[in-house]
Nucleic acid binder design. Structure first.
Length: 504
RNA sequence: GGGCCCAUAGCUCAAUUGGCAGAGCAGCGGCCUUUUAAGCCGCGGGUUGCAGGUUCGAUUCCUGCUGGGCUCACCA
């Protein structure tokens, strides 16, 4: 038989016609059913993972001819007539098995040869031995199908490279690219280490609303949704800040949250519309103490996850060992551009001198945005080693407390590693009347129809009037930290299902 | 949103100046009882992202569209 007729009459929800290989696999499925074999049996059995079987054999824990039963996905097949080698892969790794016709019999051997495909999940049982070339191998006595795969696997050597397919069908990426699987294991380790670090220091993990009637705590455009029964528009949160600080009013002294923020903005190598944030708030601390905790926390995580505080990011050697470099924003900008922004206290004069220096700021940018432009364009890309940039202009930091000796600046820092902003922190503003003025100021800065204009959170002001302890707050992008610790240049490589435009 | 680049078989990639769309892997048939990117022989598989245009002839040149990548802008 050269090629079976390429027709399939079964109804399908997929719009694409079946490929030849898919038709062949469905025919095998039918053949199995006719033989009375369930291609999707309800239960599987295993005595060892692949890794456990290998260790058990190496340590002599398996008696002569003692059978093990392993499960996994069929990843490679080498048929040599009346005997064959193949590899299965489970969550612990790969292991080879050997199957001989004279051991399993004609019927089983033909089942293996004709009915199984790469990608199928199977169960194999038999004693473990070492081949002539030294590989620990299961000598199969019984083999069973656990789940038939109806789509062919990508190239066994080159894997799946097409970036769009990797993101849209991440499960395929994960099944054939082990280094991708490793990234998300490491991501979980990072989050676990952060939790452990904060838990050990008495921080309480809390959960605050994702659906919020008023958004705030950051400068970003929100996603809007709607509650039908309440007939109420709601916003997906852009930060946790205002809710977490309410908890300090309530009496908790150390709180943190790890969760998702949503920002309705541009997508780039370091921006995804939804991303994971860590924020903590610490009563009676200031931004100096938060800085200490930050460098301690990040180096702890690196030590826990990588076993070292030195790493390579995109070709640069980075040393996370504290203490980190500290420089004021004003000095950093002066160092890189020669511009001392305090000499140009209005948007007009600052924009003018920036243009003289070759910058092209937005025409209607506020003074604070101009300073931020200088930071982002002239300073940030050079901050490869971990660096705290301190003391931001007051008018771009409406939730931060003024410096006692300089009311034009606030006690705020951002920290940068590998040329990326990793986090933002400040001595939190806890003066309810000052806070109210800041909110009113922000409202004046933006026209009401401006999408960046922020609604006034009156309940937050009310909370502060009950008394909020002085405190230091902190926010950090976990996706970016994961990029750093896995040496990835795109945030999409550290998010399992990154946002992509719909097709068609 | 602007600029640049990319899209060819299930996967990874070729295709000369515009001249018959190919290879490896995967698949199918055959040989092969310690292989490991197994090997050998044979066979099938394409709306070249989509829609137009130029041309005797378009994977190739042009326009538009869709999706992706990089980059700039945007992102208190």
């Amino acid at each position: 038989m050269l090629c079976p007729p390429l027709t399939m009459t079964q109804e399908t929800v997929m719009s694409e016609p079946l490929t030849e290989q898919e038709i062949v696999r469905r025919q095998k499925l039918e053949r199995l059913r006719q033989k009375g074999i369930d291609p999707y049996p309800t239960r599987a059995h295993r005595t060892h993972t692949a890794a456990e079987a290998i260790v058990a054999f190496e340590q002599g824990e398996l008696a002569e001819e003692q059978s093990v039963t392993l499960t996994g996905r069929l990843m490679a097949i080498r048929i040599m007539g009346k005997a064959s080698f193949a590899h299965i892969e489970d969550g612990s790794g790969r292991i080879q098995f050997y199957i001989r016709r004279d051991i399993v019999g004609d019927k089983t051997y033909e089942f293996f040869r004709r009915d199984l495909d790469l990608g199928d999940f199977i169960e194999v049982t038999g004693p473990v031995f070492r081949t002539r070339t030294g590989e620990i191998t299961v000598n199969v006595h019984q083999i069973r199908l656990l789940a038939k795969a109806l789509r062919p696997l990508p190239d066994k050597w080159h894997g799946l490279k097409d970036v769009e397919t990797r993101y849209r069908h991440r499960y395929v990426d994960l099944m054939v690219n082990p280094e991708v699987r490793q990234i998300f294991i490491r991501r979980a380790q990072i989050v676990r280490a952060l939790r452990r670090f904060l838990d050990e220091r008495g921080f309480l993990e809390v959960e605050t609303p994702i659906l919020q009637p008023i958004y705030g705590g950051a400068a970003a455009r929100p996603f809007i949704t709607h509650h039908n029964q309440l007939n109420q528009d709601l916003f997906l949160r852009i930060s946790f800040e205002l809710y977490l600080k309410r908890l300090l009013v309530g009496g908790y002294e150390k709180v943190y949250e790890i969760g998702r923020d949503f920002r309705n903005e541009g997508i780039s190598f370091k921006h995804n519309p939804e991303f994971t944030q860590l924020e903590f708030y610490w009563a009676y601390a200031d931004y100096e103490q938060v800085m200490h905790l930050t460098e301690e926390m990040i180096s702890y995580v690196a030590q826990e996850v990588l076993g070292t505080t030195k790493l390579i990011y995109q070709g640069d050697e980075i040393d996370l060992t504290p203490p980190w470099h500290r420089i004021t924003l004003r000095e950093a900008i002066k160092e890189r551009t020669g511009i001392d922004y305090v000499q140009y206290p209005t948007a007009e004069t600052l924009a003018a001198v920036m243009r003289e220096h070759g910058f092209q700021p937005q025409a209607k940018a506020t003074w604070g945005k101009l300073v931020d432009h200088l930071l982002g364009n002239a300073v940030e890309p050079y901050l490869i080693q971990p660096t705290f940039i301190l003391d931001y202009p007051r008018d771009i930091s409406p939730l931060a407390k003024k410096k006692p000796d300089d009311p034009t600046h606030v006690e705020r820092f951002e920290f940068f590693i590998g040329g990326m902003e990793m986090g933002n922190a400040f001595t939190e503003l806890n003066d309810p009347l000052d806070q109210e003025q800041r909110f009113l100021e922000m409202r004046r800065l933006y026209a009401p129809e401006d999408e960046e204009a922020h609604p006034m959170d009156e309940d937050y002001l009310l909370a502060q009037r009950y008394g909020m302890p002085p405190n230091g707050g902190f926010g950090m992008g976990i996706d970016r930290l994961t990029m750093l610790l896995t040496d990835q240049s795109s945030i999409r490589e550290v998010i399992l299902f990154p946002h992509l435009r719909s097709k068609g």
